[in-house]
Design a protein around this nucleic acid. Structure first.
Length: 702
DNA sequence: AGCCCGTCGGTTTTT
DNA sequence: CCGACGGGCT
């Protein structure tokens, strides 16, 4: 065999994985242990062995990840492997549903809704029932969260309901009605939410054993990356698709998608579901220096349910990570910027450095500072650009052509016409549902005097789009853009930025011949503005989006109780454990230098200041691993007069037992015990009982 | 009644 | 930075 030098590029454990004989294999791969490398060589080896690439299925977390892997395989083999089947569970499920969906009663065309679309749909149901203000009905976000929890744990709605506790008098019957409405609307209009992709695919597999047999004999090898983040549904999909040649790779310490039904126990259950599983552990870390790993190991060792594993590094020496306390958010931003500039001055490219944080909005302040200093950066996580209002507008025209039953898309584009708001748009769409053709659909728009002048252009657009039966997605988008560009400036701010993004979408569309493929990928794959190829940019990222990536120098900001770990997790020990793993993921992204920062004070909405506590995962760690550096050298931030630290309150006035209060982090609560030594006990609706210091925690009467 | 526009408040994490 | 909300307008 081989043009490929396996022996010199892989260590013993990796070789064992790559050459693993047929049959189920579980690879427990610690952070930075070369798991991607191992998968790449495995695929290369399979292809070299003569397996047709299209019969290898590679399930990854993002399509980007799978494309990167395949690119490396291609370089090694010097041949194209583009035919390797791959992508995410959701995109694969969508593909199967498009082919076989009719078997389980799904009528094509099918449209995938993003989170916002789903919310809008649920919102319509709640509004139609006039339940917006009802106390016993959860709002659309809460409802969808609940539903998603059920689905991703493999429960029916009823099973989910009976397994949940509802404290504050939620009406189960109303909940059922909302769910019924949601299901009905989705079915009527050919709409699927993210969870439907998985659950319907599973439904198909359970029911149609013939199809499963066909598929599973087609895919000779199935490989799954990041297996610790799959949930029960995804695991079952894998079980249907894979005969025995299945290899899954994962790390229980990096399981960070519990909110999506993933549980790190799934990975430990794998050997039970596939008897005869070979287990291979990759523990040698090729990424980080030993001091950074020491911190990661120590931090995760406090984990309650740990699957024993201890990373050791090839690189014994290195700078220890540092912890830096700063007075305010602004000083934190300034500190990070200064350090970045310093390293960049030493010749480190921007793209070798990253700033990580728990939630998308935690970097807003830093972004302002970076902009001011002219440091180029690219942000991952947080709002995606396909979610921008202008992109959604543009895509909605395409959606309507593709699926005229798509009420959401129809209403969206109708609302762009002057004189049409939610009410009239909905009425028009309702009349349109029974229309057999485009002429009659457009006729539903007559009878609104204010539309007169706009209608000619609007109708003309659809005439053009519909008349030519074989438009490519790009041609269609260009016609739409030709129409929409007249509206854009009047709709939103920064039209020139939005125009650039629209042009980006049109560029993306060149790669597609089928509208359905384009629409599917736009909602199922991560697209980012590619502002110029290979640009040297600093990376800002949520920890979730940083998974699998690495940088020479990493900053983790906002390490305060309430931000990281998130205050949302404080009530639930399991979620708190996940926050710890999340921090573990963040720390193990760093190769050479790691900086942990947090601002000591946080402004709150009363205009005062509140003291932040250091993230307790870090506070628990001994100083020899983590020298705490004092205030940063030479920080010359101009501090406004109001920055003078905590303003003591004059008295305990108003905070007697039973008083309703508001806290910027914990929300609404009630005083349980009146203040003693300036400390007060408060029972919060969402976070339970907490003791707060009146001088720091700016409680307000609520 | 329904639409438009300005203001204010509040944000986990992802497919 | 988006979405909910309220006041004035058609």
């Amino acid at each position: 065999m081989g043009r490929i030098d396996y022996q010199n590029n892989l260590n013993q454990a990796q070789l064992e994985a790559v050459f693993s004989p047929d049959g189920p294999t579980l690879i427990i791969a610690g952070a930075g242990s070369g798991k991607t490398r191992t998968l790449v060589y495995r695929v290369a080896w399979l292809v070299e062995k003569g397996i047709p690439p299209e019969r290898i299925l590679l399930l990854t977390f993002t399509r980007k990840a799978s494309q990167e892997m395949l690119h490396r395989v291609e370089e090694m083999l010097n041949r194209s492997c583009r035919e390797v089947a791959g992508g995410t569970f959701h995109s694969l499920a969508y593909k199967f549903l498009r082919i076989y969906g009719s078997v389980i009663g799904l009528k094509r065309p099918l449209t995938v809704m993003d989170r916002k679309d789903s919310e809008e749909l649920v919102g319509k149901i709640i509004k139609a029932k006039h339940w917006e203000k009802e106390k016993d009905v959860p709002d659309k976000r809460e409802f969808l969260e609940l539903l998603s929890r059920f689905v991703n744990r493999g429960l029916t709605f009823e099973e989910g309901l009976s397994n949940s506790f509802f404290e504050n008098g939620i009406s189960l019957s109303k909940l059922r009605e909302v769910n019924l409405g949601y299901e009905t609307l989705k079915r009527q209009h050919g709409l699927l939410d993210y969870d439907d992709l998985l659950s319907h695919c599973l439904h198909l597999f359970r029911q149609e054993t013939g199809i499963v047999r066909e598929l599973s004999s087609y895919y000779q090898y199935v490989l799954v990356d990041e297996y610790q983040d799959t949930n029960l549904l995804q695991a079952e999909i894998v079980r249907h698709l894979a005969r025995e040649n299945i290899m899954v790779v994962g790390d229980d310490s990096q399981s960070i998608y519990g909110f999506r039904g993933a549980h790190f126990k799934n990975i430990l259950d794998f050997p039970r579901q596939f008897p005869g599983t070979r287990v291979i552990k990759l523990e040698e870390n090729f990424r980080s220096s030993q001091p950074i790993l020491n911190l990661a190991n120590r931090m995760i060792s406090y984990s309650k349910e740990r699957y024993s594993k201890c990373l050791f590094s090839r690189f014994k020496k290195g700078e220890p990570p540092c912890l830096i306390e700063l007075p305010y958010e602004e000083s934190q931003s300034q500190y990070v910027v200064r350090q970045l500039q310093e390293f960049h001055g030493q010749g480190i490219p921007w793209q070798e450095m990253a700033v990580l944080f728990r939630a998308g909005h935690h970097s807003f302040n830093l972004e302002v500072f970076l902009q001011k200093e002219g440091i180029p950066f690219k942000k991952y996580g947080g709002r995606r650009f396909v979610e921008g209002a202008h992109i959604k507008d543009l895509i909605s025209y395409l959606k309507v052509i593709h699926n005229p039953r798509d009420v959401l898309a129809w209403e969206r584009i109708l609302r762009l016409l002057e004189g049409l708001g939610p009410k009239r748009a909905q009425a028009i769409v309702e009349r349109m549902t029974d229309c057999p053709d485009w002429t009659s659909r457009l006729e539903c728009l007559t009878g609104y005097p204010r539309l007169k002048s706009q209608l000619t252009e609007f109708s003309a657009l659809f005439q053009r789009l519909v008349d030519q039966p074989f438009l490519t997605p790009t041609q269609a988008l260009e016609m739409i853009w030709d129409y929409y560009k007249n509206l854009l400036p009047g709709l939103y701010e920064e039209p020139q930025r939005r125009q650039k993004e629209i042009e980006e979408i049109i560029r993306v569309s060149y790669n597609y011949t089928e509208t359905e493929d384009l629409l599917g990928d736009l909602s199922l794959e991560v697209y980012e503005e590619s502002d110029g190829p290979e640009k040297d940019q600093l990376v800002l990222s949520t920890v979730h989006s940083a998974k699998g990536l690495e940088w020479k120098i990493v900053f983790i900001i906002w390490l305060t109780e309430g931000r990281f770990p998130s205050s949302q997790s404080m009530m639930n020990p399991e979620e708190m454990e996940e926050e710890r793993r999340l921090l573990y993921v963040a720390i193990t992204r760093a190769k050479e230098r790691l900086f942990l920062t947090y601002p000591e004070s946080l402004s709150n909405r009363g205009g005062g200041w509140q003291k932040n506590d250091l993230c307790h995962f870090i506070a628990d760690i001994a100083e020899d691993l983590l020298p705490k550096r004092g205030k940063p050298i030479n920080h010359s931030l101009q501090v406004p007069a109001s920055y003078c630290s905590p303003i003591p309150k004059e008295d305990d006035e108003g905070f007697s037992k039973g008083t309703k209060v508001f806290h910027p982090l914990f929300g609404n609560g009630v005083i349980q015990e009146p203040p003693r030594e300036r400390k007060v006990r408060v029972l919060f609706k969402r976070y339970g009982s907490k003791v707060l210091h009146l001088d720091y925690a700016r409680l307000e009467r609520g």
